[in-house]
């Protein structure tokens, strides 16, 4: 019984970790896309477009990516709080 329980717990932990990694990968992909993508590598292309007085590539580099970073962390906090509940790890 104890052994079976332990197994279940391990499976639970594994599933939790797998889902965590999935969300991490998505969020970090966005992280890289706004900063290294929009702000650096594709800056010139994006600078063709404008947002008021800002060239878009410049805006991502000096403003936009930072705002996205903040949003990403809070989205992560929400996702993880839900995930913790789903797997019974919340406290």
């Amino acid at each position: 019984m104890a052994n079976k329980n332990e197994h279940l717990q391990k499976d639970n932990a594994k599933a939790y970790w797998k889902e965590n990694i999935k969300y991490l990968s998505i969020l970090l992909a966005i992280w890289a896309l706004v900063s290294y993508g929009a702000g650096i590598v594709f800056k010139e292309e994006l600078n063709e477009f404008r947002l008021g007085g800002f060239k878009v590539g410049f805006w991502f580099a000096q403003q936009g990516s930072m705002y996205v970073f903040v949003i990403l962390i809070f989205v992560y906090v929400r996702i993880m709080n839900k995930l913790d509940k789903k797997y019974g790890y919340d406290e």
Partner: peptide
Amino acid sequence: LMGWTGGYV
């Protein structure tokens, strides 16, 4: 700007 904030992610 990006370097010193992106690290927090």
